[in-house]
Design a protein around this nucleic acid. Structure first.
Length: 554
RNA sequence: UGACCCAUGGUGUAAUUGGUAACACAGCAGUUUUUGGUUCUGCCAUUCUAGGUUCAAGUCCUAGUGGGUCAACCA
């Protein structure tokens, strides 16, 4: 049976264009500006553009939209490429808008010669003033009537560096009274005597987005140029340039940017979080960046599945982070190795276990894996379990240890709590238990039934590690949704909790970066690059679903 | 007092393009389980409002309401 999958609105357009013969094949592009790191919103664009390429056997370029030298850097280019590769996308060509600066300049000259562009000496303030408002038409100025010759001369001088920054701009001559403000003689070139990360000092003028993006699309014969909704009002201008220049008619298609709850997504705001030290960097595991998620332990598949599952449309949206977390758990459940680690230790002494003895028990690596492999871990008479797994006076629904109660130690034995010790404040410091030798995991003949199953480590054999627990960066679901309040007011002060000394089974000392683990009953974890020879650092990617915590909260 | 766009369960996306609301997440209740994980099952919407066209409207038309984008020498 063919699974019936409906097309999204972009695929519908593509299929129509292919069927009608408008295009023999399609060509898309992913066009980041190298002024920051890629975030999860970009994953949607990536999946869309590269997904179209794969599905319709077309091509997809990677094009850096580098027309503003003041914000762009080579390190961002490198980071962006690394993220795309990590996600597993392969671009057909790597291009830069700056590759086209000469062509763009020539096209600007063409517009001037056609009387469709002019040099304006007004200040930014004057231009804004003359532009009018959405409800008030703009007015022209005397520069609008400059002769073609004068414009040609002035524009060349702008290029040659005769004028200072801001002294002059080149504008398209369209309609100062247009209802669409973007058509009110938009700026297409500005003077910027700045070093460009690729062209160096060659240029004194740089094209604006509107005079670079669509033109780059045309140069590359992009058939479907997909961007976000905020460029919708630019489309008439996009088409105007294509028409006036008579170049390849790429088609711009807009979709709604994906928003995630409990975070912010714009590069500008993410940059603020980085610069003001609210996070450790673009790849801080709490950041919604691709590199942040990678460091946190998300798999490339979980991110792509998420992007594909939420789909695309043209309406505003805020996607619940739990949808992303579901994606992470779904993939991690299949690929992560089960290990034991105790984050908040409580000592357990097994009083009837032979003093000084130990034995190896086998822990299944992954119950979801057909291969049924396992690794060994040491068991002994003195263990750590999680503090939360014991209660002095447990309610009936509590399936773990309490005075007189039994639990199974995962992969080990069933134990019974005979008593506990506490300090002067009533804090439990030690459990005294007996174990049942005939209840050993896999060869249990005891006939005993224990409802709870606990994770543990042998005190003598355990290693230690630093463990970082993350929570959502913003306490509020929509930090941007409060008028008059800065989004940073909603930063969650408890978004990072560090456990300096967690106890881990020795097997974990072999962990390598990029490997995924499930700390049994605690969540999914991965090694952080901060790890050194004598200090292992683990990041919690996401917790396990915890229906007990929910039940308890009621 | 403008132009353009959008409106389907708590959330996201669908609906053979006019044929009687689907899938997933979240939530709730069970099931399975040597992870309170996993699995499996059940429950959870008269499609913003009001008119209209039609045998038939979430899909088309009109009006209204609500929301978004645009007045950067950013992209």
């Amino acid at each position: 049976m063919e699974p019936k999958v409906s097309l999204n609105f972009v695929e519908e357009i593509v299929e129509k264009d292919l069927e009608s013969g408008k295009h023999a094949s399609i060509h898309t592009r992913f066009p980041p500006e190298p002024n920051g790191f890629l975030h999860i919103g970009h994953a949607s664009s990536l999946c869309l553009n590269f997904g179209l390429k794969t599905k319709y056997n077309g091509k997809c370029n990677l094009r850096f939209d580098d027309t503003n030298p003041s914000t762009e850097e080579t390190r961002y280019v490198e980071a962006i490429k690394k993220d795309i590769e990590w996600l597993g996308f392969e671009w057909d060509n790597e291009f830069y808008a700056s590759d086209y600066f000469d062509q763009l300049y020539d096209w600007a000259v063409v517009l001037i010669k056609k009387g469709l562009a002019y040099v304006d000496d007004s200040t930014a303030e004057e231009i804004a003033e003359q532009k009018g408002t959405p409800t008030k038409p703009g007015t022209g100025n005397e520069y609008r009537n400059r002769s073609i010759e004068e414009n040609l001369d002035l524009f060349k001088k702008m290029k040659d560096g005769v004028f200072d920054n801001g002294a002059k701009v080149l504008r398209a001559k369209i309609d100062m009274a247009a209802p669409n403000m973007l058509m009110r003689d938009p700026l297409i070139y500005r003077i910027k005597k700045e070093k460009h990360h690729r062209t160096g000092d060659k240029w004194n003028i740089y094209p604006m987005y509107d005079f670079a993006h669509g033109q780059s699309d045309s140069i590359e014969n992009i058939t479907h140029s997909i961007c976000t909704l905020e460029f919708e009002n630019h489309r008439p201008l996009y088409n105007w340039f294509i028409e006036k220049l008579g170049i390849f008619p790429s088609r711009q298609i807009e979709f709604a940017r994906r928003n995630l709850s409990h975070t912010v997504m714009s590069k500008r705001k993410l940059l603020q979080l980085v610069n003001e030290g609210h996070v450790s960097g673009w790849d801080d595991p709490r950041m919604p960046t691709i590199s942040g998620y990678r460091r946190r332990g998300y798999t490339a598949n979980s991110i792509k599945n998420f992007a594909n599952d939420i789909g695309i449309a043209r309406r505003e949206n805020i996607i619940d982070v739990s949808r992303l977390e579901f994606s992470a758990r779904q993939d991690l459940n299949k690929v992560s190795t089960r290990v034991m680690a105790v984050l908040d230790p409580l000592k357990v002494v097994i009083t009837n276990y032979p003093k000084g003895e130990m034995e190896w028990v086998e822990l299944e690596n992954n119950p979801e894996d057909e291969r049924k492999t396992a690794h060994r871990m040491p068991f002994s008479g003195e263990l750590y379990i999680e503090k939360a797994d014991f209660m002095k006076d447990p309610p009936k629904k509590f399936f773990r240890l309490g005075p007189g109660r039994m639990s199974r130690l995962k992969a080990g034995y069933i134990i019974r709590c005979d008593g506990f010790e506490e300090d002067e404040n009533g804090n439990v410091t030690q459990l005294n238990c007996t174990y049942f030798p005939e209840s050993k995991s896999g060869q249990d003949t005891s006939g005993l039934k224990a409802k709870g199953v606990l994770h543990w480590v042998s005190i003598e054999h355990a290693k230690t590690a630093e463990v970082r627990l993350y929570d959502r960066l913003f306490a509020d679901e929509n930090p941007l949704g409060h008028e008059g309040k800065d989004f940073k007011e909603f930063i969650n002060p408890d978004s990072l909790k560090v456990i300096e000394k967690a106890y881990i089974e020795p097997y974990l000392t072999n962990a390598i970066e990029g490997q995924h683990f499930q700390f049994l009953r605690m969540g999914y974890f991965t090694l952080d690059p901060d790890t050194t020879e004598d200090n292992l650092v683990f990041n919690r990617t996401v917790t396990l679903r915890d229906s007990w915590a929910k039940a308890k909260g009621k």
